[in-house]
Nucleic acid binder design. Structure first.
Lengths: 222, 222
DNA sequence: TTTCATTGGAGAGTGCTACTCTCCAATGCA
DNA sequence: TGCATTGGAGAGTAGCACTCTCCAATGAAA
């Protein structure tokens, strides 16, 4: 498959494909002559993954590249790749160990992890990310208590056990496993986000008893 | 409160405050002379809201502005404001009515909404956003069925009913209600995202029976 | 009363991301 | 032989979110 066919299959413009090649997001094709390279179905698949993570998942290319690098490093196990993917997906947070709010938030996160019986790497960046979110909530005058947080944790646990990880074939090919996992995390995350909005809208309409007022578009859209 | 004090209270640099004023994200202070304006606690609160939505929620300023405009329009009811906020929060999606994948996804979304007993405005952009996510999943070779989706919908419904909206005082002041709602949607959304990652990590570690390998940092961080 | 740092405001400039465009020589199909 | 296509490199662009510079008016301090 030549680049123009890759473009046709994936829908991604050639200039963008060239850019992804340069950035290392897409592995080079097999060079058949000085001006020809052969691409295959894995390239199409990779392009579709990138586009889904960019368009739907709103992930920056730097994050996608980190995930792809982990996938392509033959040294890492499937579980290390999962760790690397989670590492890449968490927002960078600078811890403020002197801030009492930060300490309190960290303690709450740890307490909740214990309560849920989760075994988590102590330095997992996701811990810090969650703590940061709790700090923000407190600053906004809406501190989250243990009881506020636990329902969300239980729901996350249920979804991870019963659904997210059920789709991932951990014994299958390495790249497929992490790809599936990232897709479950990111795209189902987006779906869950949208579903929460739909549920909120429905519930708000129910409370208000008047549907149209609750759901009309704003005065001016774009 | 002068601008320099507003800066001290909120932690936001003066140049940025000025920028937010220009962009209409922050209402002007009360002008007391040609070179002096008085700010108050509502300005501090607004700045904290903006920073939380930017830093934690990763929302673009354009989205935040739309939400703020809805809040500040005295004409709209609390429920219209909720609609406007959801409208602003949904990713822009261009529908492809000719695409069979799109039609199938839309049908699945409608079926699920009916199944959940939700009453949703027919043109709600969140519908289209969810449909778009389903199309992406299909393109990636992981089509979501009714049974894949319903558990997530049930979870969203439970959280909206039992937690998200419980915190919102719909009978209270307009601005507070929408602010609370947006915070619940966006910040708890981030928290849920992080919790799902923690739960996945814990579950993956449980399956693998080896914690360290699953959670170590990637070969090179930044 | 005279400094002189501060203030509000406007405009231009910056850094980053994610492309997108232009150019070019080598190639390979017609 | 002719000429569009290809791969590759570099520069250019658009949008976003600031950030910097400048300025005259001001008001607190000396």
């Amino acid at each position: 498959m030549l680049m123009s066919q890759l473009r046709a299959e994936s829908g991604v413009p050639i200039a963008t494909i060239k850019y992804y090649l340069r950035e290392g997001l897409l592995p080079p094709g097999e060079q058949t002559s000085a001006t020809r390279a052969e691409y295959n179905a894995s390239h199409v698949r990779r392009l579709r993954l990138i586009r889904a993570l960019v368009d739907v998942g709103r992930l920056p290319l730097a994050t996608i590249r980190k995930i792809i690098e982990a996938v392509e490093d033959e040294q890492t196990s499937v579980h290390q790749m999962l760790g690397a993917a989670h590492y890449a997906l968490s927002l960078p947070v600078e811890p403020a160990p002197d801030d009492p709010d930060w300490q309190e938030a960290g303690a709450l996160v740890d307490e909740m992890i214990t309560e849920m019986g989760w075994v988590i790497y102590p330095d997992a960046p996701t811990r810090a990310e969650l703590a940061q979110t709790l700090v923000s909530l407190k600053r906004l005058g809406m501190p989250a208590t243990r009881d506020d947080l636990l329902p969300y944790a239980r729901v996350a646990d249920e979804l991870a056990r019963e659904h997210d990880l059920r789709k991932v074939r951990l014994d299958g090919p390495r790249d497929t496993a992490v790809e599936t996992l990232v897709i479950m995390q990111v795209l189902y995350g987006r779906a869950l986000d949208a579903l929460r909005r739909l549920a909120q809208e429905a519930e708000s309409a129910r409370i208000a008893g008047k549907v149209q007022a609750a759901t009309g578009p704003p005065p001016e859209g774009d």
